[in-house]
């Protein structure tokens, strides 16, 4: 069956509910899925944040200090470290007044990938190119 492309669309803010966090951890799980698949089969998720889903992604989070839980920032760094494509909707960031340079990166961990701030039209293309679309 080869590669199956998935679009993970996160529409809800981080920390308000668990689902938006689970979108990230489920996407990261692509890294180990091959142990359950036939040789040559892969799953490739793309993680897309739209609407209120762009809230709570900024760098400088202190969730571990204040709540004793891993921050979304830390999870986002992990997605980049495992070479996931992460797309954040440019229009929605602008709507909430969040500067694009507030998005975290994982250069300090040696990641090559960076969060891509893109127009919604590019996220729509990801949706069109995916076999399955999962809304979180």
């Amino acid at each position: 069956m080869g590669d199956v492309k998935l679009a993970f669309i996160v529409q809800r803010p981080q920390y308000k509910g668990e689902t938006s966090r689970l979108a990230i951890t489920h996407a990261i799980a692509y890294q180990t899925v091959e142990i359950l698949l036939e040789d040559g089969d892969t799953v490739t998720p793309k993680l897309c944040f739209v609407g209120e889903g762009v809230l709570g992604l900024q760098k400088g989070q202190k969730a571990m200090d204040l709540y004793g839980i891993t921050s979304t920032e830390s999870h986002m760094k992990n997605t980049l470290l495992v070479d996931l494509d992460v797309l954040v909707c440019k229009e929605d960031l602008a709507k909430y007044g969040i500067p694009e340079d507030a998005m975290p990166d994982a250069e300090d961990m040696g990641a090559d990938k960076k969060i891509q701030v893109v127009p919604f039209s590019e996220i729509q293309k990801v949706i069109e190119d995916s076999k399955h679309v999962l809304f979180f």
Binding site: H26, A29, Y30, V33, H132
Partner: peptide, 16 residues
């Protein structure tokens, strides 16, 4: 969580 992704791989339809 990779169980879910593996099942998705072989699915005709997925409902999240």
């Amino acid at each position: 969580m990779h169980w879910y992704l593996a099942k998705i791989h072989s699915s005709d339809r997925v409902l999240q």
